[in-house]
Amino acid sequence: MQQKMRTGALVLAAGWMLGGCAGTETTPVPLGDGAEGTLIDCSGWRLGVSDCIEAANERCDGEYQVLASTAEQWQARTGVTGLLSDLDRAMIIRCADE
């Protein structure tokens, strides 16, 4: 019985730790002008805004414009900015060359 509890606790702890190691997620999103932007989600508990910035730099070779972020207070989250409403830390960017 004690061995089963110990094994169960180890499995639970490993799953919890691996879940926190997830990196940023990038998702293509259509912009209102027909161009394509990128939603960068860095909402994981071990992630921060610097992880969003790093992902944006990698995605766009350092040349991008932040169109919206969860750090900004939006009056009405409509269109593509509505994607940010359920995220803790995220931003929508447009690469300079796109």
Rank of each mutant, 00 (worst) to 15 (best):
residue 27 T to K: 12
residue 43 S to G: 04
residue 68 A to I: 04
residue 47 L to E: 13
residue 51 D to A: 11
residue 64 Y to L: 00
residue 95 C to G: 08
residue 38 T to I: 14
residue 51 D to P: 10
residue 71 A to T: 12
residue 45 W to S: 00
residue 50 S to L: 12
residue 79 G to M: 11
residue 6 R to M: 03
residue 15 G to E: 02
residue 43 S to D: 07
residue 66 V to N: 04
residue 15 G to M: 08
residue 34 G to I: 03
residue 69 S to G: 09
residue 69 S to K: 10
residue 56 A to W: 08
residue 61 D to N: 11
residue 40 I to K: 13
residue 51 D to L: 07
residue 23 G to P: 10
residue 9 A to P: 06
residue 70 T to P: 06
residue 25 E to K: 15
residue 62 G to L: 02
residue 42 C to F: 01
residue 91 M to Y: 05
residue 15 G to T: 05
residue 34 G to M: 00
residue 88 D to V: 01
residue 84 L to C: 04
residue 90 A to W: 03
residue 48 G to Q: 15
residue 94 R to V: 00
residue 55 A to F: 06
residue 59 R to W: 07
residue 50 S to G: 00
residue 90 A to F: 02
residue 79 G to T: 01
residue 48 G to L: 14
residue 31 L to Q: 09
residue 21 C to D: 09
residue 37 G to T: 12
residue 75 Q to G: 13
residue 49 V to P: 07
residue 29 V to I: 02
residue 20 G to W: 06
residue 35 A to Q: 11
residue 22 A to K: 11
residue 10 L to T: 08
residue 7 T to R: 13
residue 92 I to S: 05
residue 67 L to D: 13
residue 17 M to E: 04
residue 24 T to S: 07
residue 74 W to Q: 04
residue 8 G to M: 13
residue 44 G to V: 10
residue 7 T to N: 09
residue 79 G to K: 03
residue 35 A to W: 04
residue 80 V to R: 07
residue 24 T to W: 03
residue 34 G to P: 07
residue 8 G to S: 10
residue 52 C to E: 10
residue 40 I to G: 04
residue 65 Q to H: 11
residue 34 G to Q: 00
residue 91 M to G: 08
residue 24 T to D: 02
residue 37 G to C: 02
residue 15 G to H: 00
residue 58 E to V: 12
residue 34 G to S: 06
residue 25 E to N: 06
residue 98 E to R: 08
residue 69 S to Y: 08
residue 4 K to H: 12
residue 3 Q to G: 11
residue 61 D to V: 01
residue 89 R to Y: 03
residue 12 L to D: 02
residue 1 M to C: 09
residue 77 R to Y: 09
residue 45 W to F: 15
residue 18 L to S: 12
residue 9 A to L: 14
residue 6 R to K: 14
residue 81 T to V: 09
residue 96 A to T: 10
residue 53 I to D: 13
residue 25 E to G: 08
residue 67 L to N: 09
residue 13 A to F: 05
